[in-house]
Amino acid sequence: MALIMNEKIKASEVELLDLEGNLIGELPTQKALQLAKEQQADLVCVNMMKSPPQCQLIARGKAKAQIKKADDNTPKKEKEIRLTPAIEQHDYDTKLKQCEKLLASGHPVSLVIKLSGKQGQIAKELLQQLIQDLKPYGTPASGIQLSGKQAAVTIMPK
């Protein structure tokens, strides 16, 4: 998430909130910056959608720490690993290592096998084997989903 603060705020006027979040009012940006320096704080834009943009005084250095903490708490995006039912051992090992790395870094992994014909049972067995091999890294979110064109399972990191 981009942080717009201090001199990077280009608006000529801002709606200013003090250190506690109380509304001060609309001020020219230069005056708001001067007020921030006097209070040893940063002027941080908290709402770009308003006109004029809403900015708040935040204790110096705290804004970046809050953003970093918020980014750390956001859930990681699910990654999809595609396989085929007729996979060779070397390819299986490569996909397995890829899944292990993703799960170790906190990403959920969606294992998807594209089906053609009557490969449903082979695909299900392959997914069960992958789930078994990935047990130290994560657990399945639900059972194996078997539809007409694909078999899939999502594994959540431990």
Rank of each mutant, 00 (worst) to 15 (best):
M1I: 07
A2L: 15
M5G: 03
M5C: 04
E7K: 06
E7D: 13
K10A: 09
A11N: 04
L19F: 05
G21C: 05
N22S: 06
G25Y: 09
L27T: 00
L27R: 01
T29M: 01
Q30W: 03
K31T: 08
L33E: 04
L33A: 05
Q34M: 14
Q34F: 11
L35W: 00
A36K: 04
K37R: 15
Q40P: 00
A41S: 07
D42E: 12
C45A: 02
V46C: 01
V46I: 11
M48W: 13
K50Y: 02
P53V: 07
Q54W: 00
Q56V: 00
L57V: 02
L57M: 00
I58R: 03
R60S: 13
G61P: 05
K62L: 11
K62A: 11
K64W: 08
K64C: 07
Q66A: 10
K68H: 13
K69D: 06
K69E: 12
A70C: 00
D71H: 11
D71W: 10
D71L: 14
N73S: 08
T74Y: 10
I81H: 05
R82A: 10
L83E: 06
T84Y: 03
P85A: 10
A86G: 10
E88M: 14
E88K: 15
D93F: 14
K95Q: 01
K95I: 07
L96M: 13
C99Q: 06
C99N: 03
E100G: 08
K101M: 08
K101Y: 11
K101P: 00
K101D: 07
V109T: 10
K114I: 12
L115V: 08
S116W: 11
S116Q: 10
Q119K: 10
G120S: 12
Q121N: 15
A123E: 01
A123V: 02
A123H: 03
K124R: 14
K124F: 05
L126K: 02
Q128A: 10
Q128D: 15
L130N: 04
Q132T: 13
D133N: 12
G138L: 09
P140G: 12
P140W: 11
A141G: 11
S142E: 13
S142P: 07
I144F: 14
I144M: 12
I144S: 09
L146M: 15
Q150C: 00
Q150W: 12
A151R: 04
A151W: 01
A152Q: 14
I155L: 13
P157H: 07
K158T: 14
